[in-house]
Design a protein around this nucleic acid. Structure first.
Lengths: 107, 107
DNA sequence: ATTTTATTTCGATAAACATCGAACGGTTCA
DNA sequence: TGAACCGTTCGATGTTTATCGAAATAAAAT
C-alpha cells in the first residue's frame, strides 16, 4: 500500500461520522445498505451523508451499485485489512524496516 | 481501544508531515531522537515540528523525556499495534462483531 | 549573572473540512 | 408525460487544522 493511499484511508476513518457510517456498513456486510437507510440509522441529512460517502469511496473503503432508484453502499473490508497491514508492516510498528538504530548517544 | 482514542490516533497519522515524523521515530527506535534532530532530518521549522509532536503525543503515539536541554522523542509502537487491532477486530473488518446481516433484500 | 542552546508557546494567516438547505438529475410508476 | 422518490451537487457558512516568525521558557556553559 502506498503512503498516499494510506493517508487517504486514515483521514477517511479519522472522523466520527464517517467511522460510524463505515462501521454500519461493516455490520450490514456483505449485502450493503441503500443511502437512505444509512441516513435513517444515523440520523444524518442527505447532503451530509452524501459528502461523507464520497470521501469513503474516494479512499477505496466503500463501493456502490445502483439498484432501481437506490444506491446500495457496501464496505470494502479488504481495504481496512490493507491499512492495518500498512500500519504494522510498512510503516510504524516494531517490524517496520530499519528499526533498531541509535542516535541519542548515552555517554 | 476506545473509539475516541482510535479517531485521535487515526487523525494523528492521517497527515503527511506527522506520518513522516512518526516513521522517522520508528526508525530510530528505541532510543529516540531530540526534537532538533527531527527538525533537521525533515527540514521543518521548529514551531511547525513542535505543533505536530504535540498532536502525536496527545494521541499517545509518542512520548518524550528531557535530557539536558534536549527533549528526546520516541515512538510508542504499541499504540500503533493497538490501532491496527482496533481496525481489524473492534471496528471495521470481516471479523468485526455483528457482521453478516442483510438489509437489501433481493426479492 | 549573562549568554548560548534547545524547544515551546503565542499570534496571525491561509487553507482545508464539515454541515446542511435548496435546487437538480436520474428512475420508477401511474 | 408528469408526479413521486432517492440521492447527488451546489453554494453559503462556520469550524478546525496547518504553517511559521517572533517572543518566551528552560537548562547549561561561561
Amino acid at each position: 500500500m502506498e503512503k498516499a493511499d494510506a493517508i487517504e484511508a486514515l483521514a477517511a476513518l479519522a472522523q466520527e461520522t464517517r467511522l460510524d457510517i463505515f462501521r454500519t456498513l461493516v455490520e450490514y456486510r456483505p449485502s450493503g445498505l441503500p443511502a437512505g437507510q444509512i441516513a435513517q440509522l444515523l440520523e444524518l441529512p442527505g447532503a451530509t451523508l452524501s459528502f461523507h460517502l464520497n470521501q469513503l469511496k474516494q479512499a477505496g473503503l466503500i463501493q456502490s451499485i445502483r439498484q432501481g432508484r437506490s444506491l446500495i453502499y457496501s464496505a470494502n473490508t479488504d481495504a481496512v485489512d490493507a491499512l492495518a497491514d500498512f500500519l504494522r508492516e510498512d510503516c510504524c510498528s516494531k517490524s517496520a524496516a530499519g528499526a533498531g538504530e541509535a542516535a541519542v548517544g548515552g555517554r
